[in-house]
Design a protein around this nucleic acid. Structure first.
Lengths: 144, 144
DNA sequence: ATCTTTGCAAATGCTTTGCACATTC
DNA sequence: GAATGTGCAAAGCATTTGCAAAGAT
């Protein structure tokens, strides 16, 4: 995998933001947990292991900044808090999520397949789609 | 349009719930605002016009019950509160929403077109899809 | 008569904000 | 050195909950 950190550093610089140790640490936590969907509080707990002085408010601010920069994306899985994951650099749209109604497990879908639908939306509603958030609710392989 | 109220009444009865004036009033507000996506507080304000004695907590409880019964569906448009709309009785899945990133307007998409994708999800992940929530973010006809 | 539902107010819990101090560039 | 970023504690706000009274079947 290429050096995400170097890339992010230049993204921040370009936009006039500073690369602080808190931001670096937060990004490292996201990199290490690419398979998970962490809440702000969970990120906070993880970051605290290397940067014990960090405050929860900083995590919230960092996560907001990263989302605005397109580095991470925010998801709501109806559990009362927002959850975050690193954006896959090769994707131009968010990937879909499968949410099990029984065990609550969340997994990812790699296929997009929304091109036809977005074409229709463009034609019928003249709405220019930039991104999408797609969640499928149902029963996972273990629970069905 | 057929008599939704009669239908709901029997749904409630079947499950052992009572048809109270608060529930009837809440349902009437949802019926009158089928084109909108009301928050609990907005429903509360509307219901108060005919039932001034209702409490906000009751609206929250009613909205939760109606969602569990499949009468209404809950959506999160990232504005800090949940929003509700009457389920279209002829749909077996939630319809999709278009959210304008500029003006914040929300509109509906009548086509589903997720059959192929759900078929793939079943085969590849052996995940049985029951419902979906699909939001497209972009620019509406006025704002693009 | 019994079990459910409601209103009120208080509690909960995530997220945001004000401000003085610290840190990057 | 100037502007941005941080930590802490307090505030904000949507939603939930406990409880005694009211209502539905």
């Amino acid at each position: 995998m290429y050096d995400v950190m170097v890339n992010i550093k230049s993204v921040l610089k370009e936009q006039g933001f500073k690369l602080t140790s808190q931001r670096r640490a937060t990004l490292e936590v996201m990199l290490k947990n690419q398979d998970k969907h962490l809440s702000a509080d969970e990120i906070y707990v993880e970051v605290k292991r290397t940067n014990p002085e960090i405050g929860l408010a900083t995590v919230y601010r960092t996560v907001l900044l990263f989302e605005e920069l397109g580095i991470i994306s925010k998801h709501n899985f109806e559990d009362g808090r927002n959850r975050y994951e690193l954006s896959h650099p090769e994707e131009n749209h968010d990937h879909h999520h499968l949410i099990c109604l029984k065990c609550g497990g969340v997994s990812e879908v790699e296929v997009d397949l929304l091109g036809a639908l977005e074409g229709i939306i463009d034609k019928k509603h003249s709405f220019k789609v930039v991104n999408h958030k797609v969640k499928f609710y149902g029963l996972c392989s273990k629970c069905r």
